[in-house]
Amino acid sequence: MNVRQLLVHKGGAVYRIHPEATVLEALKELARHNIGALLVMDGDRLLGIFSERDYARKLVLLGRFSKDTRVQEVMTENPIAVTPETDLEEAMRLMTEHRVRHLPVLEGGKVVGVVSIGDAVKAILMEKELLIQELSRYVSENR
């Protein structure tokens, strides 16, 4: 399975925030959509990603206030991205290797989606379950 197939299945919703927004506004968006990260974008241009981890490590631990801090001050710049043709296992390897939970998906320089580690695990487990069912059916039919 590749990233495009996952996006077709899960949908290509992209939740974003402007770099000048406050961290408090970003936290409200995360809560409203029940997600763990927002793409930081200026128009169609991807600047970074803001995650719960950024909030915890770059704001709370530094004693800063979410209503007084701009997203651009604490976002992760130049996030690792994948293309729709990237194999899902490769996307998981990248997330594991770089210790990130979300990958923007870029096609022709444009953001077309986001893949999370949860999305990838769920898709791979579904794929493995289907394979097990097919193999079980094959074995029972060929006894």
Score class of each variant (00 low, 15 high):
Met92Ile: 13
Glu52Asp: 11
Ala123Gly: 01
Ser51Met: 03
Arg70Phe: 06
Asn2Met: 09
Asp42Trp: 12
Gly11Lys: 09
Lys122Thr: 08
Ala13Asp: 15
Asp44His: 11
Leu47Pro: 05
Ser116Gly: 11
Leu47Gly: 05
Val139Gln: 03
Glu89Lys: 13
Gln133Phe: 06
Ser51Pro: 04
Lys67Val: 15
Ile80Glu: 05
Val40Gln: 02
Val100Gln: 03
Asn2Leu: 02
Leu125Tyr: 09
Val71Tyr: 06
Gln5Leu: 13
Thr69Glu: 01
Lys10Glu: 10
Tyr15Arg: 13
Asn142Pro: 05
Ile124Asp: 02
Glu90Trp: 03
Arg99Lys: 15
Val23Pro: 01
Ala120Asn: 08
Gly11Asp: 08
Leu39Gly: 04
Glu20Cys: 08
Pro84Tyr: 04
Gly63Asp: 07
Met75Trp: 02
Val40Met: 08
Leu47Arg: 12
Val111Glu: 10
Asn78Ile: 07
Val115Arg: 00
Val23Thr: 03
Glu107Leu: 10
Met75Val: 03
Arg53Met: 09
Lys28Thr: 11
Gly12Thr: 14
Asp42Thr: 11
Tyr138Met: 08
Met1Gln: 00
Leu39Val: 07
Arg64Phe: 09
Val60Gly: 03
Ser116His: 09
Ala21Gln: 08
Asp68Gly: 01
Arg99Ser: 12
Gly63Leu: 10
Leu135Pro: 06
Glu90Cys: 01
Leu94Pro: 00
Glu29Tyr: 04
Asp68Cys: 08
Phe50Arg: 01
Arg16His: 05
Met126Ala: 15
Phe65Asp: 13
Ile117Pro: 00
Leu59Ala: 08
Arg45Asn: 12
Ser136Leu: 13
Met1His: 03
Ala13Phe: 12
Ala21Ile: 03
Gly43Cys: 08
Ile117Gly: 07
Leu94Thr: 01
Ile132Cys: 04
Gln133Met: 12
Asp44Asn: 14
Leu38His: 04
Thr86His: 00
Val60Cys: 06
His33Pro: 08
Ser51Phe: 03
Arg45Ala: 11
Met92Gln: 10
Phe50Glu: 00
Val114Pro: 05
Gly43Ser: 09
Met126Ile: 14
Arg4Thr: 00
Gln133Ile: 02
Val60Glu: 07
